[in-house]
């Protein structure tokens, strides 16, 4: 009797947890489905390659796509070298019992937990007010050049936000390389940096790539840090200089959803923009997941 009750309860909970999985999957599908249904119809080559017109009720979103791409490229240029170097330090250069290692790790973990809006405040308070105004005073005689919202500062703010992602992924990649490889390199007379550069990094490339892709996906989607560090609603030009503002997909979604004057006219554009943004982040995330599972499968062999 008791056995049957146990079996019943077990089966119940097994099914219940399975339903939880199903519920989450269904919610993801609903969101995607809703966006695709309302947004796909409005997509066109013209939409992706022209600028908004007629007060955002017509036209396309090319400046936002360009701005997002430019922003993310700058961010990657900053975060990948920094993150990879930090991971290399933690794995290869730090002495075994160094007190710095737990400190750096703790710093990275805490950076990962800082709210996005706090990064925005930091971008404003440090990059713009301190660095930017400082640069203006020393190089431009007080003119307002870099001491204002700019794509450079927004990119650096995002780089700080995504730093933990790159560090963790790189560390994971370095850890996986067998110890023997390092020892063989040393025994052949290589210096530490040579060993890292010619033995470790080539093998860690896919892991670093995963981390970079995840960072890019995060950077393309976060809006709070760029609210005051450079995103703009309507610019008649594309940002070509580091001290210019930029349009951005996520910010565009936010402004259109909350401030467009004719909500019904802009709804198709809004949905289509959401579609483009989601397509971007999903493709990136999916690519990262694929690379990661390929690495794991290679490891098991």
């Amino acid at each position: 009797m008791k056995r049957r009750w146990i079996n019943f309860v077990s089966r119940f909970f097994t099914i219940a947890t399975g339903l939880a999985c199903l519920a989450v999957t269904v919610m993801v599908a609903l969101i995607l489905g809703n966006v695709v249904r309302h947004g796909f119809g409005h997509l066109s080559w013209k939409f992706l390659s022209t600028a908004p017109s007629a007060g955002m009720t017509e036209g396309g979103i090319f400046p936002a796509i360009f701005g997002t791409a430019f922003l993310v490229i700058l961010m990657t240029l900053a975060v990948v070298p920094l993150g990879v170097c930090t991971a290399i330090y933690l794995q290869e250069y730090a002495p075994a019992r160094s007190r710095w290692v737990p400190l750096v790790r703790m710093a990275i973990q805490n950076l990962a937990g800082v709210p996005a809006i706090v990064f925005g405040l930091f971008g404003l308070g440090f990059f713009i007010q301190f660095l930017g105004k400082g640069i203006d005073r020393f190089f431009f005689g007080g003119d307002l050049v870099f001491g204002q919202p700019a794509i450079l500062w927004a990119a650096l703010t995002l780089a700080l936000l995504t730093l933990p992602t790159v560090v963790v992924a790189t560390e994971e990649a370095l850890r996986v390389v067998p110890r023997a490889h390092r020892e063989v390199a040393y025994s052949l007379g290589a210096t530490r940096w040579r060993m890292v550069r010619h033995v470790l990094l080539p093998q860690a490339v896919s892991g670093i790539l995963t981390g970079t892709i995840l960072a890019v996906s995060r950077g393309a989607g976060e809006v709070a840090p760029i609210l005051f560090t450079g995103a703009a609603y309507y610019l008649p030009y594309l940002p070509k200089r580091l001290n210019q503002q930029f349009m951005e997909l996520g910010y565009h979604v936010y402004v259109m959803a909350t401030q467009s004057p004719d909500v019904d006219a802009t709804m198709p554009i809004l949905y289509a923009t959401v579609f483009v943004l989601l397509a971007l982040t999903f493709t990136l995330n999916f690519a990262a997941i694929l690379i990661r599972s390929k690495i794991r499968r290679r490891m098991k062999r």
């Binding site: 703009a232 030009y237 401030q259």
Partner: peptide, 12 residues
């Protein structure tokens, strides 16, 4: 549109 060299930038 009427003045080719003008650049006006708008933010809310």
């Amino acid at each position: 549109a009427s003045r080719k060299d003008a650049v006006i930038q708008v933010t809310g």
